[in-house]
């Protein structure tokens, strides 16, 4: 709530947080929207919701984030929340191999129920627990490349890369949107593109762009 700045924003993006139960989705959300971390957090029932407005590439973007319950049977319910989402953070726990192996199931879930253009970012959370690591960063990276996703390891506890993860996905989305807008503009033949926004097509799914902490 601390970040509910105002009602003025250029874009409103809906993002869903998905992944196995207990990988830290809710803490990623609270870290991002309230800069809080709760070691003893409670299970998410159904979905939880929060927003935050931030600057991405010079634009004010309001991120609407839906945090979903991880238990398998909740998918029938949570998939209803995929509608209209332009981005998804697919989270696994680097200390839980199974949560990484389930990434594929979550991907097919997204591909079956979300918009086909949804931007997906894979996130390996709990990087602070390096001594318990069971998924190597390279494995995550490799899978992300294979599936064409961006990738980051985060630690909600240490506030490491959480901001960056959201910045990355939001700017990816922003680029796609402005690319589309540009294409539409050109198709309509209405003169030169507005402003000098660089639209790097090849880079649209690339990862890690901006530094963190814009707020």
């Amino acid at each position: 709530m601390a970040h509910r700045v105002d009602n003025e924003y250029d874009y409103l993006f809906k993002i869903v947080l998905i992944g196995d139960s207990g990988v830290g989705k809710s803490n990623i959300l609270s870290r991002f929207t309230r800069n809080e971390f709760c070691l003893e957090s409670k299970s998410t029932i159904g979905v939880e919701f929060a927003t935050r407005t931030l600057q991405v590439e010079g634009k004010t973007i309001k991120a609407q984030i839906w945090d979903t319950a991880g238990q398998e049977r909740y998918r029938a319910i949570t998939s209803a929340y995929y509608r209209g989402a332009v981005g998804a953070l697919l989270v696994y726990d680097i200390t839980k191999k199974l949560s990484f192996e389930n990434i594929n199931r979550w991907l097919s879930e997204l591909r079956n129920h979300a918009d086909s253009n949804i931007v997906i970012m894979m996130v390996g959370n709990k990087s602070d627990l390096n001594h318990l690591r069971s998924v190597q960063e390279e494995e995550g990276q490799a899978l992300a490349e294979k599936e064409g996703l961006s990738f980051l390891e985060t630690s909600a506890l240490e506030a490491l890369n959480v901001e960056k993860a959201f910045q990355t996905i939001l700017s990816d989305i922003h680029q796609i949107i402005s690319k589309k807008a540009l294409a539409a503009q050109e198709a309509a033949g209405s003169g030169p593109p507005t402003q000098g926004t660089t639209i790097n097509v090849a880079d649209s799914s690339g990862n890690m762009k901006k530094g963190c902490c814009s707020t």
Binding site: S21, G22, C38, E40, S41, K42, S43, Q71
Partner: peptide
């Protein structure tokens, strides 16, 4: 497994 995950997440504290 799910129960174990949720035990500490039930009215934590």
């Amino acid at each position: 497994g799910q129960i174990e995950k949720d035990l500490p997440r039930t009215f934590p504290g």
